[in-house]
């Protein structure tokens, strides 16, 4: 099940433009496999925009152009022969607000595998159990697999969404502020889940909670849009502990010590 040493990203001079306006420019960094990489920075600094480049969800918004090169395990994901559908099987995403489908817990998780051709009931049962286990929801969920997903609490719904994303066995899981709409206990559970998952899947998480980034990530990238006229840029990227104890850029230090943002 574990994808040994796969799921690493290399970003080279990546830029994103909405129409004529350049939102993010000149981002070069690597995302190591089977580790948690956190993208931090104040609101509007292009964290989510950059995240959406990694599974090409920006393609679905009209008028977005992505420049530079993004490689997943060495292959350019914006190459002509790459189909975004295939890419998204390898790179899953969990969104800010829990967004389960209006169907049963089971059908939510089986959605991805079914989309990609799994029909066998026993196989689906196994995938559902395995995915829920990985998302730390199996203990609670095995009794309500047939229940409508909307009957779950917010925290359970978000873990259901994590399980749903894991069901296609992605190498990378993108998380866009996955706990920002949840209470502290649910946030704790999500963070525990992330810690468990990072042995088997690469995680890139956007958060503007710096304590969260410090707690859960191995690597941190700090982004900033310094003026409204200039595009957002990557200020500093490195080992999380170093970033939080001994940042090399004064702007990073100012941000993590809470002087702005």
């Amino acid at each position: 099940m574990v994808n040994a040493n796969t799921g690493s990203f290399e970003l080279e001079d990546v830029s994103v433009a909405y129409g004529n306006e350049i939102a993010v420019a000149g981002v070069s960094m690597t995302v190591p496999p089977q580790a948690v990489t956190a993208l931090i920075g104040p609101s509007g600094c292009g964290k989510s925009t950059l995240l959406r480049c990694l599974n090409r969800m920006n393609d679905e918004i009209g008028g977005v152009t992505v420049g530079g090169t993004i490689r997943l395990d060495g292959d350019d994901i914006y190459a002509k022969r790459v189909d975004s559908v295939e890419l998204r099987i390898r790179v899953g995403q969990v969104f800010q607000k829990p967004n389960p489908f209006p169907m049963s817990v089971y059908d939510n998780i089986a959605y991805g595998p079914r989309t990609h051709g799994v029909r066998n009931r026993a196989e689906l049962d196994a995938i559902v159990e395995h995915s829920l286990t990985r998302a730390a929801l199996w203990g609670e969920a095995k009794s309500f697999l047939k229940k409508h997903a909307f009957e779950l609490s917010g925290g359970q719904q978000q873990r259901l969404c994590i399980a749903r994303a894991l069901a296609t066995e992605p190498e990378v899981l993108l998380m866009d502020e996955p706990a920002s709409a949840l209470d502290p206990i649910s946030t704790q559970q999500i963070e525990d889940t992330i810690a468990e998952l990072k042995d088997s899947v690469t995680i890139v998480i956007v958060t503007h909670n710096m304590q969260q980034a410090a707690r859960i990530s191995d690597r941190t990238a700090f982004m900033l849009r310094e003026t409204m006229e200039a595009p957002a840029a990557l200020i500093e990227v490195g080992d999380t502990r170093t970033m939080f104890t001994n940042p090399s850029d004064p702007r990073t230090e100012a941000y993590i010590t809470g002087r702005f943002g």
């Binding site: 599974n55 899953g92 995403q93 969104f95 607000k97 489908f101 209006p102 959605y111 989309t115 749903r164």
Partner: peptide, 26 residues
Amino acid sequence: PRELRQASMALGATRIRTVRKVVLPA
């Protein structure tokens, strides 16, 4: 909600499958 369409697309579903399986039933 747009989020439902995004969830489906992010799982590698095509737009038409997203409409048929998620959006239209709802």
